[in-house]
Amino acid sequence: MTTKLGEVHKALMKEAERVERLTVRALAYLGEQCVKKVRDRSGKESWYDQTGNLRSSVGYVIAKNGSIIQYSDFNQVKQGSEGVKAGKELAEELVKRFSNDYVLVVVAGMNYAELVEAMDNKDVLASTELWARNRLPKMLEKLKRQIAK
């Protein structure tokens, strides 16, 4: 009996690991698409870089139960090393608000990102957030199908 229980436990743990891999992969894909939508636009479509800090501060983290399990690349643009640091720090801070289950946090970490959207009427994260909220139900359905296999 003990052997069979051990085998069942081992099979359940293997399945749990598979579900986690699929979940993280789906969230990472959505996060990468969001980062690409924000970063890979011309100045006319978004904003014109002065220092590169705002564009460098764009990235994401994935966390499970409040612990970060994956970071995106916060790639430096121009001299935007301050943006890389600010983006990571903001993402790490925001994750602390979510202590249950999985979370994808996408950020533009410079403290003036909101100001660029409000004052200069430029799109930093707003349209990407709407796009991601629209994509999420489809992504979750696909994830459910993958898990059921």
Rank of each mutant, 00 (worst) to 15 (best):
V61E: 06
K14G: 08
N134C: 09
R135N: 10
L90M: 14
K96R: 14
G87Y: 04
K10W: 01
R133W: 12
R21Y: 09
Y102E: 07
K144D: 03
L143V: 02
Y102M: 08
N111R: 13
Q33Y: 03
W131S: 07
R25A: 12
A91E: 09
M1P: 13
G43R: 14
L140E: 06
A86V: 01
R133I: 10
K14T: 12
A113F: 14
V124A: 05
G43L: 14
S46E: 09
V103M: 05
E141N: 13
E93L: 10
L54P: 00
K4A: 11
E17F: 08
N53V: 06
L12T: 03
L12G: 00
S42R: 11
E117N: 03
A11S: 12
Q33V: 09
E15F: 11
Y60W: 12
A118N: 14
K138L: 06
K78A: 14
G80W: 04
E117F: 01
R21W: 05
S57P: 06
G31H: 02
V106D: 08
E7D: 14
N53H: 07
R55T: 13
E20C: 07
V103F: 03
K88C: 04
R135Q: 15
C34K: 01
V105I: 15
V19F: 08
A113V: 12
K37S: 14
A91L: 07
R97P: 00
N134I: 08
E129P: 01
V77N: 09
V58I: 13
K149F: 03
M110S: 14
V19E: 10
D73A: 13
S99D: 10
L130A: 12
G80L: 08
E89K: 15
K122C: 00
T23G: 01
E129T: 07
L5V: 10
R39C: 14
E32P: 03
L90Y: 06
K14N: 13
I69Y: 00
V77Q: 11
Y29N: 12
T128N: 03
E129G: 06
K78F: 10
L27C: 01
E17P: 00
M110E: 15
L115V: 13
E89F: 09
L104F: 10
Y29L: 11
Y102S: 05
E89I: 08
V116K: 13
F74N: 05
K88I: 08
M119L: 07
Y71N: 02
Q79R: 10
G80V: 06
R55C: 08
K88S: 05
L143G: 04
D123Q: 02
S99L: 07
V35M: 13
V35D: 08
T2L: 07
A148I: 03
G80T: 05
C34G: 06
T3D: 14
L27A: 02
L115F: 12
V19N: 06
T128P: 02
I147Y: 09
G43V: 15
N121H: 02
V35A: 12
S42H: 11
M110Q: 15
M139I: 12
L136N: 02
S57I: 06
R55N: 10
R97C: 02
R39T: 15
C34R: 03
E89C: 04
Y71K: 01
T51M: 02
E114M: 10
Q70G: 02
F98I: 08
K122H: 00
S127N: 11
R25F: 01
V106K: 05
F98V: 09
Q50I: 14
